[in-house]
Write a protein that binds this DNA or RNA. Structure first.
Lengths: 204, 204
DNA sequence: ATGCGTTTTTGCACAAGATGCAGGAATCTC
DNA sequence: GAGATTCCTGCATCTTGTGCAAAAACGCAT
Protein backbone atom coordinates (compact mmCIF):
# COMPACT_ATOMS: atom_id res chain seq x y z
CA UNK A 1 0.00 0.00 0.00
CA UNK A 2 1.67 3.15 -1.19
CA UNK A 3 0.74 6.57 0.09
CA UNK A 4 1.38 8.27 -3.23
CA UNK A 5 -1.87 8.91 -5.00
CA UNK A 6 -0.59 9.03 -8.52
CA UNK A 7 -3.34 10.95 -10.27
CA UNK A 8 -2.23 9.64 -13.64
CA UNK A 9 -1.88 5.98 -12.89
CA UNK A 10 -3.64 3.63 -15.21
CA UNK A 11 -6.22 2.81 -12.56
CA UNK A 12 -6.89 6.41 -11.73
CA UNK A 13 -7.28 7.41 -15.35
CA UNK A 14 -9.63 4.55 -15.99
CA UNK A 15 -11.81 5.43 -13.04
CA UNK A 16 -12.05 9.00 -14.15
CA UNK A 17 -12.92 7.91 -17.66
CA UNK A 18 -15.64 5.59 -16.41
CA UNK A 19 -17.09 8.27 -14.18
CA UNK A 20 -17.08 10.70 -17.07
CA UNK A 21 -18.67 8.14 -19.37
CA UNK A 22 -21.45 7.49 -16.90
CA UNK A 23 -22.03 11.19 -16.37
CA UNK A 24 -22.07 11.89 -20.11
CA UNK A 25 -24.48 9.06 -20.75
CA UNK A 26 -26.74 10.18 -17.93
CA UNK A 27 -26.74 13.80 -19.05
CA UNK A 28 -27.36 12.99 -22.68
CA UNK A 29 -30.17 10.52 -22.07
CA UNK A 30 -31.92 12.56 -19.41
CA UNK A 31 -31.64 15.67 -21.55
CA UNK A 32 -33.28 13.79 -24.39
CA UNK A 33 -35.88 11.64 -22.64
CA UNK A 34 -36.38 13.23 -19.26
CA UNK A 35 -35.54 11.91 -15.82
CA UNK A 36 -38.36 9.43 -15.56
CA UNK A 37 -37.90 8.37 -19.17
CA UNK A 38 -34.35 7.29 -18.50
CA UNK A 39 -33.44 4.20 -16.51
CA UNK A 40 -30.17 3.49 -14.81
CA UNK A 41 -30.00 0.41 -16.95
CA UNK A 42 -30.03 2.51 -20.11
CA UNK A 43 -27.38 4.85 -18.75
CA UNK A 44 -25.15 1.96 -17.77
CA UNK A 45 -25.48 0.35 -21.14
CA UNK A 46 -24.59 3.56 -22.94
CA UNK A 47 -21.61 4.05 -20.66
CA UNK A 48 -20.49 0.49 -21.23
CA UNK A 49 -20.67 -0.76 -17.66
CA UNK A 50 -22.88 -3.14 -15.76
CA UNK A 51 -25.90 -1.62 -14.04
CA UNK A 52 -24.49 -2.61 -10.69
CA UNK A 53 -21.36 -0.58 -11.38
CA UNK A 54 -23.38 2.58 -11.79
CA UNK A 55 -24.09 2.68 -8.09
CA UNK A 56 -20.45 2.47 -7.13
CA UNK A 57 -19.92 5.76 -8.94
CA UNK A 58 -23.07 7.69 -8.11
CA UNK A 59 -25.65 7.13 -5.38
CA UNK A 60 -28.54 8.07 -7.66
CA UNK A 61 -29.53 8.93 -11.20
CA UNK A 62 -29.85 12.59 -10.31
CA UNK A 63 -26.34 12.73 -8.92
CA UNK A 64 -24.98 11.17 -12.09
CA UNK A 65 -26.57 13.95 -14.13
CA UNK A 66 -25.30 16.71 -11.84
CA UNK A 67 -21.88 15.19 -11.18
CA UNK A 68 -20.94 17.18 -8.13
CA UNK A 69 -17.23 17.64 -7.59
CA UNK A 70 -16.61 16.23 -4.12
CA UNK A 71 -13.74 18.53 -3.17
CA UNK A 72 -14.97 21.73 -4.72
CA UNK A 73 -15.86 23.06 -1.30
CA UNK A 74 -12.31 22.65 -0.07
CA UNK A 75 -11.01 24.19 -3.24
CA UNK A 76 -13.22 27.28 -2.94
CA UNK A 77 -12.18 27.63 0.66
CA UNK A 78 -8.51 27.64 -0.29
CA UNK A 79 -9.07 30.12 -3.11
CA UNK A 80 -10.95 32.47 -0.83
CA UNK A 81 -8.34 32.35 1.89
CA UNK A 82 -5.63 33.07 -0.69
CA UNK A 83 -7.22 36.35 -1.74
CA UNK A 84 -5.29 39.46 -0.62
CA UNK A 85 -5.79 40.14 3.08
CA UNK A 86 -6.80 43.75 2.55
CA UNK A 87 -9.63 42.92 0.15
CA UNK A 88 -13.12 43.25 1.55
CA UNK A 89 -15.12 40.09 1.96
CA UNK A 90 -17.69 40.59 -0.77
CA UNK A 91 -15.04 41.32 -3.35
CA UNK A 92 -13.07 38.26 -2.32
CA UNK A 93 -16.19 36.11 -2.52
CA UNK A 94 -17.11 37.57 -5.84
CA UNK A 95 -13.71 36.92 -7.33
CA UNK A 96 -13.65 33.39 -5.97
CA UNK A 97 -17.06 32.49 -7.32
CA UNK A 98 -16.48 34.26 -10.61
CA UNK A 99 -13.37 32.22 -11.19
CA UNK A 100 -15.13 28.99 -10.42
CA UNK A 101 -18.27 29.66 -12.42
CA UNK A 102 -16.22 31.06 -15.28
CA UNK A 103 -14.36 27.78 -15.48
CA UNK A 104 -17.63 25.86 -15.56
CA UNK A 105 -19.01 28.02 -18.33
CA UNK A 106 -16.10 27.45 -20.67
CA UNK A 107 -18.11 24.85 -22.55
CA UNK A 108 -20.95 27.27 -22.88
CA UNK A 109 -23.22 25.03 -24.90
CA UNK A 110 -23.12 22.27 -22.32
CA UNK A 111 -23.58 24.77 -19.52
CA UNK A 112 -26.72 26.20 -21.08
CA UNK A 113 -28.18 22.77 -21.66
CA UNK A 114 -27.32 21.85 -18.11
CA UNK A 115 -29.02 24.88 -16.62
CA UNK A 116 -32.11 24.42 -18.75
CA UNK A 117 -32.21 20.74 -17.91
CA UNK A 118 -32.22 21.55 -14.22
CA UNK A 119 -35.16 23.87 -14.81
CA UNK A 120 -37.07 21.25 -16.76
CA UNK A 121 -36.47 18.55 -14.19
CA UNK A 122 -37.15 19.83 -10.67
CA UNK A 123 -35.99 16.54 -9.21
CA UNK A 124 -32.45 17.51 -10.12
CA UNK A 125 -32.69 20.37 -7.66
CA UNK A 126 -32.13 17.88 -4.87
CA UNK A 127 -28.55 17.24 -5.89
CA UNK A 128 -27.97 20.85 -6.84
CA UNK A 129 -29.26 22.13 -3.53
CA UNK A 130 -27.19 19.65 -1.57
CA UNK A 131 -24.13 20.72 -3.47
CA UNK A 132 -24.90 24.40 -3.01
CA UNK A 133 -25.50 23.95 0.67
CA UNK A 134 -22.13 22.32 1.11
CA UNK A 135 -20.43 25.18 -0.73
CA UNK A 136 -22.21 27.82 1.30
CA UNK A 137 -21.17 26.19 4.55
CA UNK A 138 -17.57 26.01 3.45
CA UNK A 139 -17.60 29.63 2.39
CA UNK A 140 -19.26 30.78 5.59
CA UNK A 141 -16.58 29.16 7.68
CA UNK A 142 -13.85 30.57 5.45
CA UNK A 143 -15.29 34.08 5.53
CA UNK A 144 -15.69 33.91 9.29
CA UNK A 145 -12.05 32.91 9.51
CA UNK A 146 -10.98 35.77 7.25
CA UNK A 147 -12.90 38.31 9.27
CA UNK A 148 -12.04 36.82 12.63
CA UNK A 149 -15.73 36.42 13.43
CA UNK A 150 -17.58 33.64 15.18
CA UNK A 151 -20.23 32.40 12.73
CA UNK A 152 -22.41 31.41 15.67
CA UNK A 153 -22.32 34.82 17.33
CA UNK A 154 -22.56 36.94 14.19
CA UNK A 155 -24.80 36.68 11.19
CA UNK A 156 -22.40 38.64 9.03
CA UNK A 157 -20.56 35.72 7.43
CA UNK A 158 -23.83 34.01 6.55
CA UNK A 159 -25.28 37.16 5.07
CA UNK A 160 -22.17 37.96 3.06
CA UNK A 161 -22.04 34.49 1.59
CA UNK A 162 -25.76 34.49 0.94
CA UNK A 163 -25.54 37.74 -0.97
CA UNK A 164 -22.54 36.75 -3.03
CA UNK A 165 -23.85 33.29 -3.86
CA UNK A 166 -27.27 34.71 -4.56
CA UNK A 167 -25.96 37.28 -6.99
CA UNK A 168 -23.98 34.57 -8.65
CA UNK A 169 -26.99 32.34 -8.92
CA UNK A 170 -29.14 35.10 -10.38
CA UNK A 171 -26.49 35.98 -12.93
CA UNK A 172 -25.98 32.37 -13.89
CA UNK A 173 -29.68 31.83 -14.33
CA UNK A 174 -29.99 34.86 -16.51
CA UNK A 175 -26.95 33.85 -18.51
CA UNK A 176 -28.51 30.49 -19.27
CA UNK A 177 -31.87 32.06 -20.05
CA UNK A 178 -30.44 34.24 -22.75
CA UNK A 179 -27.99 31.55 -23.86
CA UNK A 180 -24.86 33.59 -23.47
CA UNK A 181 -25.83 36.83 -25.19
CA UNK A 182 -23.96 38.72 -22.48
CA UNK A 183 -20.83 37.40 -20.85
CA UNK A 184 -21.24 35.98 -17.40
CA UNK A 185 -18.95 38.64 -15.99
CA UNK A 186 -21.23 41.36 -17.38
CA UNK A 187 -24.29 39.82 -15.81
CA UNK A 188 -22.51 39.43 -12.51
CA UNK A 189 -21.63 43.13 -12.68
CA UNK A 190 -25.27 43.89 -13.30
CA UNK A 191 -26.39 41.77 -10.37
CA UNK A 192 -23.96 43.41 -7.99
CA UNK A 193 -24.93 46.82 -9.29
CA UNK A 194 -28.56 46.06 -8.48
CA UNK A 195 -27.47 44.96 -5.05
CA UNK A 196 -25.60 48.18 -4.45
CA UNK A 197 -28.64 50.15 -5.55
CA UNK A 198 -30.87 48.36 -3.07
CA UNK A 199 -31.92 50.01 0.12
CA UNK A 200 -31.77 46.89 2.22
CA UNK A 201 -31.76 48.60 5.56
CA UNK A 202 -35.32 49.81 5.50
CA UNK A 203 -37.64 48.79 8.27
CA UNK A 204 -41.29 47.80 7.97
CA UNK B 1 -70.47 18.40 -11.33
CA UNK B 2 -70.68 21.56 -9.29
CA UNK B 3 -68.10 24.30 -9.38
CA UNK B 4 -68.51 25.20 -5.74
CA UNK B 5 -65.68 23.77 -3.70
CA UNK B 6 -67.27 23.60 -0.30
CA UNK B 7 -64.24 23.68 1.94
CA UNK B 8 -66.18 22.31 4.88
CA UNK B 9 -68.02 19.44 3.26
CA UNK B 10 -67.66 16.09 4.88
CA UNK B 11 -65.46 14.90 2.04
CA UNK B 12 -63.22 17.90 2.14
CA UNK B 13 -62.77 17.70 5.89
CA UNK B 14 -61.99 14.03 5.71
CA UNK B 15 -59.40 14.53 3.01
CA UNK B 16 -57.70 17.24 4.99
CA UNK B 17 -57.69 15.06 8.07
CA UNK B 18 -56.20 12.15 6.17
CA UNK B 19 -53.52 14.33 4.66
CA UNK B 20 -52.68 15.74 8.06
CA UNK B 21 -52.59 12.26 9.59
CA UNK B 22 -50.20 11.04 6.92
CA UNK B 23 -47.99 14.08 7.31
CA UNK B 24 -47.94 13.77 11.10
CA UNK B 25 -47.11 10.09 10.93
CA UNK B 26 -44.37 10.70 8.39
CA UNK B 27 -42.83 13.54 10.36
CA UNK B 28 -42.93 11.70 13.65
CA UNK B 29 -41.51 8.44 12.35
CA UNK B 30 -38.82 10.04 10.21
CA UNK B 31 -37.82 12.33 13.05
CA UNK B 32 -37.43 9.29 15.27
CA UNK B 33 -35.98 6.68 12.97
CA UNK B 34 -34.54 8.62 10.05
CA UNK B 35 -35.63 8.68 6.44
CA UNK B 36 -34.20 5.33 5.47
CA UNK B 37 -35.37 3.77 8.73
CA UNK B 38 -38.97 4.62 7.95
CA UNK B 39 -41.01 2.85 5.31
CA UNK B 40 -44.08 4.13 3.60
CA UNK B 41 -45.81 1.05 4.91
CA UNK B 42 -45.08 2.09 8.50
CA UNK B 43 -46.28 5.64 7.84
CA UNK B 44 -49.48 4.41 6.25
CA UNK B 45 -50.18 2.06 9.09
CA UNK B 46 -49.67 4.80 11.68
CA UNK B 47 -51.93 7.11 9.70
CA UNK B 48 -54.58 4.43 9.38
CA UNK B 49 -54.65 4.14 5.60
CA UNK B 50 -53.60 1.55 3.06
CA UNK B 51 -50.09 1.90 1.69
CA UNK B 52 -51.51 2.50 -1.76
CA UNK B 53 -53.44 5.48 -0.46
CA UNK B 54 -50.26 7.17 0.67
CA UNK B 55 -49.27 7.86 -2.92
CA UNK B 56 -52.50 9.55 -3.78
CA UNK B 57 -51.69 12.18 -1.15
CA UNK B 58 -47.95 12.60 -1.60
CA UNK B 59 -45.71 11.63 -4.49
CA UNK B 60 -42.90 10.58 -2.18
CA UNK B 61 -41.92 9.98 1.42
CA UNK B 62 -39.92 13.19 1.49
CA UNK B 63 -42.88 15.25 0.33
CA UNK B 64 -45.02 13.76 3.06
CA UNK B 65 -42.53 14.93 5.66
CA UNK B 66 -42.22 18.42 4.19
CA UNK B 67 -45.90 18.83 3.31
CA UNK B 68 -45.61 21.70 0.91
CA UNK B 69 -48.68 23.90 0.69
CA UNK B 70 -49.63 23.84 -2.98
CA UNK B 71 -51.08 27.34 -3.12
CA UNK B 72 -48.68 29.13 -0.86
CA UNK B 73 -47.05 30.74 -3.86
CA UNK B 74 -50.31 32.29 -4.95
CA UNK B 75 -51.02 33.38 -1.42
CA UNK B 76 -47.65 35.11 -1.04
CA UNK B 77 -48.17 36.80 -4.36
CA UNK B 78 -51.51 38.19 -3.23
CA UNK B 79 -50.11 39.35 0.09
CA UNK B 80 -47.25 41.12 -1.59
CA UNK B 81 -49.46 42.86 -4.09
CA UNK B 82 -51.73 44.02 -1.28
CA UNK B 83 -48.92 45.88 0.50
CA UNK B 84 -49.21 49.67 0.32
CA UNK B 85 -48.24 50.98 -3.08
CA UNK B 86 -45.77 53.51 -1.70
CA UNK B 87 -43.77 50.95 0.23
CA UNK B 88 -40.40 50.05 -1.23
CA UNK B 89 -39.98 46.56 -2.54
CA UNK B 90 -37.62 45.15 0.06
CA UNK B 91 -39.85 46.28 2.89
CA UNK B 92 -42.88 44.78 1.23
CA UNK B 93 -41.06 41.52 0.67
CA UNK B 94 -39.81 41.51 4.21
CA UNK B 95 -43.24 42.06 5.66
CA UNK B 96 -44.76 39.39 3.44
CA UNK B 97 -42.18 36.78 4.32
CA UNK B 98 -42.15 37.72 7.99
CA UNK B 99 -45.85 37.21 8.17
CA UNK B 100 -45.68 33.84 6.51
CA UNK B 101 -42.71 32.52 8.44
CA UNK B 102 -44.11 33.92 11.65
CA UNK B 103 -47.27 31.93 11.12
CA UNK B 104 -45.20 28.78 10.54
CA UNK B 105 -43.20 29.35 13.68
CA UNK B 106 -46.21 29.59 15.94
CA UNK B 107 -45.75 25.99 16.96
CA UNK B 108 -42.13 26.70 17.74
CA UNK B 109 -41.28 23.26 19.01
CA UNK B 110 -42.45 21.60 15.84
CA UNK B 111 -40.70 24.23 13.74
CA UNK B 112 -37.37 23.65 15.44
CA UNK B 113 -37.67 19.91 15.06
CA UNK B 114 -38.57 20.39 11.44
CA UNK B 115 -35.58 22.59 10.68
CA UNK B 116 -33.20 20.25 12.47
CA UNK B 117 -34.71 17.28 10.75
CA UNK B 118 -34.05 18.86 7.38
CA UNK B 119 -30.44 19.36 8.40
CA UNK B 120 -30.10 15.78 9.55
CA UNK B 121 -31.64 14.35 6.41
CA UNK B 122 -30.21 16.01 3.32
CA UNK B 123 -32.62 14.07 1.12
CA UNK B 124 -35.40 16.30 2.40
CA UNK B 125 -33.71 19.24 0.69
CA UNK B 126 -35.16 18.06 -2.58
CA UNK B 127 -38.69 18.91 -1.57
CA UNK B 128 -37.63 22.03 0.29
CA UNK B 129 -35.67 23.37 -2.65
CA UNK B 130 -38.47 22.69 -5.08
CA UNK B 131 -40.86 24.52 -2.80
CA UNK B 132 -38.49 27.44 -2.33
CA UNK B 133 -37.90 27.72 -6.03
CA UNK B 134 -41.60 27.95 -6.70
CA UNK B 135 -41.98 30.68 -4.10
CA UNK B 136 -39.08 32.69 -5.46
CA UNK B 137 -40.51 32.58 -8.97
CA UNK B 138 -43.89 33.74 -7.76
CA UNK B 139 -42.33 36.57 -5.79
CA UNK B 140 -40.13 37.64 -8.69
CA UNK B 141 -43.10 37.97 -10.96
CA UNK B 142 -45.08 39.81 -8.29
CA UNK B 143 -42.24 42.22 -7.55
CA UNK B 144 -41.73 42.88 -11.23
CA UNK B 145 -45.40 43.67 -11.50
CA UNK B 146 -45.25 46.00 -8.51
CA UNK B 147 -42.29 47.87 -9.91
CA UNK B 148 -43.52 47.83 -13.49
CA UNK B 149 -40.34 46.10 -14.57
CA UNK B 150 -39.79 43.35 -17.09
CA UNK B 151 -38.10 40.49 -15.22
CA UNK B 152 -36.41 39.44 -18.42
CA UNK B 153 -34.90 42.83 -19.12
CA UNK B 154 -33.95 43.76 -15.56
CA UNK B 155 -32.23 41.78 -12.86
CA UNK B 156 -33.68 43.95 -10.14
CA UNK B 157 -36.69 41.81 -9.25
CA UNK B 158 -34.57 38.69 -9.04
CA UNK B 159 -31.97 40.40 -6.88
CA UNK B 160 -34.55 41.90 -4.55
CA UNK B 161 -36.28 38.59 -4.02
CA UNK B 162 -32.98 36.81 -3.62
CA UNK B 163 -31.87 39.21 -0.93
CA UNK B 164 -35.13 39.12 0.99
CA UNK B 165 -35.51 35.35 0.82
CA UNK B 166 -31.86 34.91 1.65
CA UNK B 167 -32.07 37.07 4.74
CA UNK B 168 -35.14 35.16 5.75
CA UNK B 169 -33.43 31.85 5.24
CA UNK B 170 -30.40 32.92 7.25
CA UNK B 171 -32.56 34.17 10.10
CA UNK B 172 -34.67 31.05 10.10
CA UNK B 173 -31.62 28.83 10.16
CA UNK B 174 -30.14 30.74 13.04
CA UNK B 175 -33.43 30.70 14.88
CA UNK B 176 -33.58 26.93 14.65
CA UNK B 177 -29.92 26.57 15.60
CA UNK B 178 -30.41 28.39 18.86
CA UNK B 179 -33.87 26.90 19.37
CA UNK B 180 -35.71 30.14 19.70
CA UNK B 181 -33.50 32.04 22.15
CA UNK B 182 -34.19 35.18 20.16
CA UNK B 183 -37.47 35.84 18.41
CA UNK B 184 -37.54 35.32 14.70
CA UNK B 185 -38.30 39.00 14.15
CA UNK B 186 -35.16 39.96 16.06
CA UNK B 187 -33.00 37.69 13.97
CA UNK B 188 -34.55 39.00 10.80
CA UNK B 189 -33.74 42.52 11.98
CA UNK B 190 -30.18 41.42 12.55
CA UNK B 191 -29.91 39.85 9.12
CA UNK B 192 -31.25 42.97 7.39
CA UNK B 193 -28.95 45.14 9.48
CA UNK B 194 -25.98 43.12 8.26
CA UNK B 195 -27.23 43.53 4.75
CA UNK B 196 -27.45 47.27 5.10
CA UNK B 197 -23.92 47.36 6.49
CA UNK B 198 -22.55 45.49 3.50
CA UNK B 199 -20.69 47.28 0.76
CA UNK B 200 -22.06 45.20 -2.06
CA UNK B 201 -21.14 47.55 -4.84
CA UNK B 202 -17.41 47.07 -4.67
CA UNK B 203 -15.62 45.88 -7.79
CA UNK B 204 -12.79 43.36 -7.99
C1' DA C 1 6.31 -13.59 -17.74
C1' DT C 2 4.56 -15.48 -13.37
C1' DG C 3 2.47 -15.28 -9.13
C1' DC C 4 0.28 -12.66 -5.30
C1' DG C 5 -2.24 -9.12 -2.89
C1' DT C 6 -5.37 -5.33 -3.82
C1' DT C 7 -8.93 -2.89 -6.10
C1' DT C 8 -12.75 -2.83 -9.29
C1' DT C 9 -16.40 -4.83 -11.68
C1' DT C 10 -20.13 -7.75 -11.98
C1' DG C 11 -24.15 -10.86 -10.98
C1' DC C 12 -27.60 -12.23 -7.78
C1' DA C 13 -30.85 -11.67 -4.28
C1' DC C 14 -33.80 -8.67 -2.11
C1' DA C 15 -36.23 -4.66 0.21
C1' DA C 16 -38.41 -0.48 -0.73
C1' DG C 17 -40.27 3.19 -3.77
C1' DA C 18 -43.57 4.40 -7.20
C1' DT C 19 -47.32 3.95 -10.84
C1' DG C 20 -51.38 2.01 -13.65
C1' DC C 21 -55.52 -0.30 -13.41
C1' DA C 22 -59.86 -1.94 -11.91
C1' DG C 23 -63.13 -3.37 -8.41
C1' DG C 24 -65.43 -1.91 -4.28
C1' DA C 25 -66.65 1.54 -0.65
C1' DA C 26 -67.93 6.08 0.80
C1' DT C 27 -69.95 10.36 -0.23
C1' DC C 28 -72.72 13.74 -2.66
C1' DT C 29 -76.89 15.23 -5.21
C1' DC C 30 -81.39 14.89 -6.09
C1' DG D 1 -82.98 5.83 -1.24
C1' DA D 2 -80.98 5.65 -6.29
C1' DG D 3 -77.66 7.06 -9.28
C1' DA D 4 -73.49 9.45 -10.22
C1' DT D 5 -69.11 10.82 -8.59
C1' DT D 6 -65.11 10.58 -6.03
C1' DC D 7 -62.01 8.14 -3.06
C1' DC D 8 -59.75 4.02 -1.11
C1' DT D 9 -57.75 -0.31 -1.75
C1' DG D 10 -55.40 -4.54 -3.57
C1' DC D 11 -52.77 -6.42 -7.23
C1' DA D 12 -49.35 -6.51 -10.72
C1' DT D 13 -45.34 -4.47 -12.33
C1' DC D 14 -41.24 -1.69 -12.95
C1' DT D 15 -37.53 0.93 -11.03
C1' DT D 16 -34.30 2.35 -7.47
C1' DG D 17 -30.85 1.23 -4.33
C1' DT D 18 -27.93 -1.93 -1.23
C1' DG D 19 -25.34 -6.05 0.64
C1' DC D 20 -22.63 -9.81 -0.50
C1' DA D 21 -19.43 -12.77 -2.74
C1' DA D 22 -17.29 -14.42 -6.93
C1' DA D 23 -14.74 -13.06 -10.99
C1' DA D 24 -11.90 -9.93 -13.52
C1' DA D 25 -8.43 -6.30 -13.86
C1' DC D 26 -4.60 -4.22 -12.06
C1' DG D 27 0.04 -3.10 -9.58
C1' DC D 28 4.10 -4.86 -7.99
C1' DA D 29 7.90 -7.75 -6.98
C1' DT D 30 10.48 -11.47 -8.28
Amino acid sequence: MSITVDATSHRERKKRATRQAIHDAAFELVDRHGLSGTTVEAISERAGVAPRTFWSYYPSKEDAVIDHDPDLARSLRVTLLERPAGEDAVTALRATLEGYVGRRLVDSDKAVRRQQLIRREPHLMASVAASFDELERALVSAVAERLGLDPVASLRPQVLVMVACGACRVAQQKWADEQGRHTFADLLDQAFAELAATEAGSRP
